[in-house]
Design a protein around this nucleic acid. Structure first.
Lengths: 333, 333
DNA sequence: CTGTTAGCGCCTTCAG
DNA sequence: CTGAAGGCGCTAACAG
């Protein structure tokens, strides 16, 4: 019994007689033998380790992110790989480059993707396979899975118009984040604007730091701009408590007098709020899983294929949205 | 210039003349050279990779967990290590054993620790260094960092009594989780009970699944048990929206008519709620960081020391707690 | 279908 | 303070 035979049996790299493979596996779990991951990786030039790059977002971490991480980790393990977590800040490319060159990982899944994302040229030039959870402006030749925020934006507007709302505001994330081209923020706002334009409605938009106090102020400003507002769409869930406070502070009730819809938050966050808030939810767990799958496909296939997936968000109506109040219903301006 | 000299220079394993080390590092960042992690690990028998075992909790993931993960990942990288994320379920010991034996990681940091945690004998016998974020019942010889929930429980009771409350209920996590001996749940309840006993007050306790609907029901049941309740302590943040609904549904206002304090939640969750809820918050980021530090200490030191850290929680008063309403103030029974 | 033999890229004893 | 050689545990050609 040669060592190589064992290797072949384990990796299935070569046909092995039923008899010997049986003996090998018997011995293996008798001795509790597990091949050494490092040696295996060194010899085969494939570590079977991938990285998940999760640059801790400046806007603070939400529950959304952990759903990605957990599902990505599960998908990784199910495929017999290990997943290291990289948290280098987005702008710290040097650090990323170093990690890249240590040869520890076979590829990387990137989160928090911006329209013009510097990681893409970095990994391209290094010849390191990668996939995106999210997508950049130019997606040629890149495997990604993203939530369809363009669809989400127009869906919300359609939903609210269907309830009779015509004065619908939009509250984005912070200005730095939006200007830096953070995908969900930019795309949702864009499709909101298009939908409003198409409907001949007036757009009322503001950016807003991701905290309650800022949410309060921003909402007041939106209302100053259009006092007839009866509904608000936001991608800034951390600002929502402030918005709710501003609304109820005026003596309005949710959803009777004012409707609120959050795009991009997960259900678990929505249900923490009072009232539970209507959301357009991306399929986070599915995205984490697919992000890994797309990367592994590149690593395993001989003819690496490019796959681009856009997952629709689900509208989940909870207690924060309802028909436009008749007495406050504005005219189409 | 021999390869070994370069190795010594990089690892500082042996004195190197200033001149040559300068030349080496110059060449290194000119060529962008990074030593191969796998080869280095194989030869030195130290991979410089640690694992964070985060068994996805049955009660669902909260924001708390991601704070651990992020800070642990940062601490890991700052020390020149990589961190893989393991998500094997708690009861799936076989899977854990396999991971353990692949020799990929030098040690592991465990989250979600139970009073009688099967991972401990597993890793002990395997000779794999580990540290805990949380702690088991028997902590002899184990490095851990945990939040002091015992202190937290008595702190809350003291805080509420100071506000005049005498009828204080306790809402725990789900029965399976509590019975399995999940540390925070068990310890907080225990210290609540002690504090109530000491004060000669009546304990009113229930377990509750981690969702809003269950929170509603459980609160009603608590109230049926003691109609004079004016305050509730809970370690079940996902149940809180239901509790809030039940309270306001009775026409009571928070905090004027009823006070609510959540133990163990992070501020970011507390501020999502309406009203923002008073919490006793563990120092999550610090715990993640320390968990890693304790492990690395064992890996690097020649005389591995056992360190046990109990971090106090911070009482953060927000809008959900206040003085006991005079008209509903009960008598000490 | 199985055995033999070089390495994978680095660290770490040896010797100088 | 530096160089030379062996080997970490496995895989992947090469033979048979």
């Amino acid at each position: 019994m040669a060592a190589s035979t064992v290797s072949y049996a384990i990796n299935g790299t070569r046909p092995i007689s039923e008899e010997t493979r049986r003996r090998i596996f018997a011995a293996m779990d008798e001795l509790g033998y597990q091949p050494n991951a490092l040696a295996r990786g060194l010899a085969s030039k494939r570590s079977r380790i991938i990285a998940l790059h999760f640059p801790i977002p400046e806007r603070g971490v939400g529950l959304t992110e952990i759903e990605f991480i957990a599902s990505a980790a599960n998908a990784t393990r199910e495929n017999g790989y290990e997943m290291v977590l990289w948290t280098s800040e987005m702008h710290n490319l040097e650090e990323l480059r170093q990690s890249t060159q240590q040869g520890l990982v076979d590829g990387v899944v990137a989160m928090e993707v911006y329209l013009h994302d510097e990681r893409i040229p970095l990994w391209r030039e290094a010849g390191l396979p990668f996939s995106l959870i999210g997508r950049s402006a130019d997606t040629a030749g890149i495997s990604y899975v993203d939530a369809d925020f363009e669809l989400a934006g127009s869906d919300v507007v359609r939903y609210l118009r269907g309830l009779g709302h015509t004065h619908i505001g939009f509250l984005n994330q912070s200005q730095p984040v939006t200007e830096a081209g953070y995908g969900p923020a930019v795309r949702t706002q864009h499709s909101y604007e298009q939908a409003m334009d198409t409907a001949g409605l007036i757009r009322v938009v503001r950016t807003c730091p991701t905290n309650a106090a800022a949410g309060y102020d921003s909402f007041e400003q939106l209302l100053a701009e259009d006092p007839d507002l009866t509904a608000l769409v936001t991608v800034n869930d951390r600002a929502v408590p402030g918005v709710v406070q501003a609304i109820t502070g005026r003596g309005w009730r949710i959803p009777d007098d004012f409707s609120l819809v959050v795009v991009g938050s997960s259900g678990s966050v929505a249900e923490l709020m009072t009232p539970p808030v209507t959301t357009v939810e991306p399929q986070n767990a599915e995205m984490g899983r697919q992000g890994v799958r797309l990367l592994l496909e590149q690593l395993e296939a001989r003819e690496p294929e490019i796959t681009q997936i856009l997952l629709p968000c689900r509208l989940v109506v909870r207690g924060s949205s309802g028909p436009c109040p008749v007495e406050r219903r504005g005219t189409i301006s």
